[in-house]
Simulated assay, not measured.
Amino acid sequence: MQITLDTPLDMHLHLRDGEMARLVTPCSARTFAGAVIMPNLVPPVTDSAAMRDYAERILQAADGCDFRPYMTLFFKNQTRQELETALANPLFFGLKLYPAGATTNSEGGVKNLGETGTTLHLMEEMGIPLLIHGESHGFVMDREQDFLPVYRNLATRFPKLKISMEHITTAAALELLDAHENLHATVTLQHLLITLDDLAGGMLKPHLFCKPIAKRPADRDALLQAALSGHPKLMFGSDSAPHPIHKKECCGCAAGVFTAPFALAKLAETFATHQSLDNLQAFVSGNARRIYALTPPDKTVTLVDTPMTIPAAYRGYGQEIVPMDAGHTIGWSVA
């Protein structure tokens, strides 16, 4: 069995910078036609000049692969002039809003959502998408649930603003997705497959720890069913987030799961297992292209039901990253 995907897209990707980016960028660029690149570097990517320079470094790290980085700016109440300057760059995609301190390198994020209205009105007027890390600072299992009223409020106040609920993890988020025309969502590979029990039910598995944290079986099952059924507002966003091994296997483990090199193969295996391969194209490209009117580079990727073993680690440029399911064999691979 095999499937050929047209212009697969990763709608939420962390490439980091420097030597780490040199190692991980080709892992995505070889199989994806493009990806929405997160801006939470240190310091964050907040202006057009930094965005342009970062895009150039990514394209250089892609090592000749036909790959389009869709660039985002770290939300900081940008002015009209700043947004117009960003729009002049054809690689600019949207703004990413982080509640301050909600996840990795988000300390400079938004502290008072009530002060964002001016920029959000400008984004609505100019057709700039808003991507949100939707978590509160409450109890870890309830943080997404607590944030849903914020999504509801924004969707109502700014009905023409295209809002993406990033890496959703709950059945409740899916219900909200269907309630507002201008809400869309991405979901990760890990949140389609694992629950909190996989992370912490036995011995702690740090390479499965991410934010938002994995939730209950009912949430996982709802997300998986939505993806398998071809939900028209749900897009694949890996949230693949590499960290050096010493930042994961330590006290104070960093949040992030690395899946980029094998994400498409594992998705193909998952959809095939559930007799839903016909809906994989929409999930990994069709929905995103329609929602955002994207025209990524022409690229086709063929996946076959030939087993592959996920490496124990990815190494290079002085970096070492342990992926999700390191050492495990999966049933599909890239042809």
Rank of each mutant, 00 (worst) to 15 (best):
residue 147 F to M: 00
residue 147 F to K: 01
residue 147 F to I: 01
residue 149 P to I: 10
residue 149 P to S: 05
residue 152 R to Y: 07
residue 152 R to C: 06
residue 152 R to M: 10
residue 153 N to W: 15
residue 153 N to D: 06
residue 154 L to H: 00
residue 154 L to R: 00
residue 154 L to P: 00
residue 155 A to Q: 00
residue 157 R to P: 01
residue 158 F to M: 07
residue 158 F to D: 07
residue 158 F to G: 09
residue 159 P to Q: 10
residue 159 P to N: 09
residue 160 K to D: 09
residue 160 K to T: 14
residue 161 L to S: 04
residue 162 K to Q: 04
residue 163 I to W: 02
residue 164 S to T: 08
residue 165 M to W: 03
residue 165 M to P: 04
residue 166 E to N: 04
residue 166 E to D: 10
residue 166 E to R: 07
residue 166 E to L: 06
residue 166 E to A: 03
residue 167 H to P: 01
residue 168 I to S: 06
residue 171 A to E: 09
residue 171 A to K: 12
residue 171 A to W: 11
residue 172 A to V: 06
residue 173 A to G: 00
residue 173 A to L: 08
residue 176 L to D: 12
residue 177 L to W: 04
residue 178 D to L: 08
residue 178 D to F: 08
residue 179 A to Q: 14
residue 180 H to P: 00
residue 180 H to M: 03
residue 181 E to A: 14
residue 181 E to G: 05
residue 181 E to Y: 09
residue 184 H to D: 02
residue 185 A to I: 11
residue 186 T to H: 01
residue 187 V to H: 10
residue 187 V to E: 03
residue 188 T to E: 12
residue 189 L to A: 02
residue 189 L to F: 14
residue 189 L to E: 03
residue 191 H to I: 01
residue 191 H to D: 04
residue 192 L to T: 04
residue 193 L to I: 12
residue 193 L to K: 14
residue 194 I to W: 10
residue 194 I to F: 14
residue 194 I to D: 04
residue 195 T to R: 11
residue 195 T to A: 10
residue 196 L to D: 12
residue 198 D to G: 02
residue 199 L to R: 07
residue 200 A to V: 02
residue 203 M to T: 11
residue 204 L to K: 11
residue 205 K to R: 04
residue 206 P to D: 10
residue 207 H to P: 05
residue 212 P to N: 14
residue 216 R to C: 05
residue 217 P to M: 08
residue 219 D to F: 01
residue 219 D to L: 02
residue 220 R to C: 10
residue 220 R to W: 07
residue 221 D to Q: 10
residue 222 A to L: 05
residue 223 L to F: 06
residue 225 Q to W: 11
residue 225 Q to C: 09
residue 226 A to R: 02
residue 226 A to P: 09
residue 227 A to W: 07
residue 228 L to Q: 06
residue 228 L to R: 02
residue 229 S to R: 06
residue 231 H to D: 00
residue 231 H to Y: 04
residue 232 P to L: 12
residue 233 K to C: 01
residue 235 M to V: 05
residue 236 F to E: 00
residue 237 G to T: 03
residue 240 S to P: 04
residue 240 S to I: 12
residue 241 A to G: 12
residue 241 A to D: 10
residue 242 P to H: 15
residue 242 P to F: 15
residue 243 H to E: 08
residue 246 H to S: 09
residue 246 H to T: 06
residue 247 K to W: 10
residue 247 K to L: 12
residue 247 K to F: 08
residue 248 K to A: 08
residue 248 K to Y: 13
residue 250 C to E: 13
residue 252 G to V: 04
residue 252 G to P: 00
residue 252 G to T: 01
residue 252 G to W: 15
residue 252 G to S: 13
residue 254 A to Q: 12
residue 254 A to H: 13
residue 254 A to C: 06
residue 255 A to L: 11
residue 257 V to R: 11
residue 257 V to L: 09
residue 258 F to C: 07
residue 259 T to C: 13
residue 260 A to H: 09
residue 260 A to Q: 15
residue 261 P to L: 11
residue 261 P to A: 15
residue 262 F to P: 05
residue 268 A to E: 07
residue 271 F to L: 05
residue 273 T to Q: 15
residue 273 T to N: 12
residue 274 H to S: 14
residue 274 H to Q: 14
residue 274 H to N: 14
residue 274 H to M: 13
residue 275 Q to C: 11
residue 279 N to Q: 06
residue 280 L to Y: 12
